[in-house]
C-alpha cells in the first residue's frame, strides 16, 4: 500500500538532528535542576492505569482542500495495548498490541507488523510509548526533548531512523501531570495531524 519508494533523507534532517542533540545536552543540566525531566515525566506516566478517552483529530493534508475531521475513542491498557476507534465520519478501528497492528474497516481486517512498517510505527509508538511512560522504548526510536513543567509539559519527539524521519519530522505530545491532552504530528512532507484527547474514565 505504499508507493514503494521512500524519500531519501535530506542532509538538513541530519543536521537538524545533531542540532537537537546539542540543544538537549545543553538543556539537560537545567531540566534536572528544576526537578522536572524526562525521567520524572516517564515515572509519572508509567503509573497510568488502564484508561479510556475521547479524541478529536484534524488532519491537514496538502493533497486536500480542507482538513479531515475525525473523532472517536481511545483505550489504553498498559504496557502496550492501544485501541483507537474512530466513530465519525466513518467507523474503523485500529488495535496495536505489541508488534501487531490490526486495522478493521468495512468488515475487513488487516494485520501487520509494526517492525515491517516503520512508516506506521513512527506515528503509533510516540503515543503508545508516552502513554506507557516507556522511556527506553521512546529513546530507541526518538530523540526526546522536554519543555515546560509538570502541570503543563510538552515533549518533542524526533524520529531517529532515517526511514521514519522520511515520514515524520517531529511529534509533540503535551499534557498536565500524567494526562496527555494533545498530540501533534508534523509530517516530513508538511502535512500535519492534531489530536486532542480528553480522558473519560474517573
Amino acid at each position: 500500500m505504499t508507493s514503494g519508494r521512500r524519500p531519501a533523507q535530506p542532509d538538513f534532517v541530519r543536521a537538524a538532528r545533531s542540532l537537537v542533540a546539542a540543544a538537549l545536552l545543553a538543556l539537560a543540566p537545567w531540566a534536572s535542576a528544576a526537578g522536572w525531566d524526562v525521567a520524572t515525566l516517564m515515572e509519572l506516566l508509567s503509573r497510568n492505569k488502564p484508561g479510556r478517552a475521547t479524541f478529536n483529530e484534524t488532519r491537514h493534508l496538502a493533497l486536500l482542500d480542507r482538513p479531515l475531521e475525525l473523532s472517536g475513542e481511545l483505550r489504553f491498557t498498559p504496557p502496550n495495548r492501544l485501541e483507537k476507534r474512530t466513530l465519525a465520519p466513518g467507523t474503523d478501528s485500529m488495535v496495536v498490541d505489541g508488534d501487531v497492528l490490526t486495522l478493521e474497516r468495512a468488515g475487513r481486517r488487516h494485520t501487520l507488523s509494526l517492525r515491517e512498517h516503520p512508516e506506521i510505527a513512527v506515528f503509533i509508538e510516540s503515543i503508545r510509548g508516552t502513554l506507557a511512560g516507556d522511556r527506553a522504548a521512546l529513546e530507541r526510536a526518538y530523540a526526546l526533548a522536554l519543555e515546560g513543567e509538570a502541570k503543563r509539559w510538552n515533549l518533542v519527539l524526533k524520529p531517529l531512523s532515517p526511514v521514519a524521519a522520511g515520514f515524520v519530522a517531529r511529534i509533540e505530545v503535551s499534557g498536565r501531570q500524567a494526562d496527555i491532552h494533545r498530540v501533534e504530528i508534523f509530517q516530513a512532507d508538511g502535512d500535519r495531524t492534531l489530536m486532542m484527547i480528553r480522558r473519560t474514565d474517573p
Binding site: 500500500m1 508507493s3 493533497l63 474512530t86 474497516r105 506515528f123
Partner: peptide, 16 residues
Amino acid sequence: VALLASPAGPALKAIV
C-alpha cells in the same frame, strides 16, 4: 478520502 482518514491514511497518501 475515507481511507485517508483511517489509520492507514498516512501510508496511503503518497499514491492517491
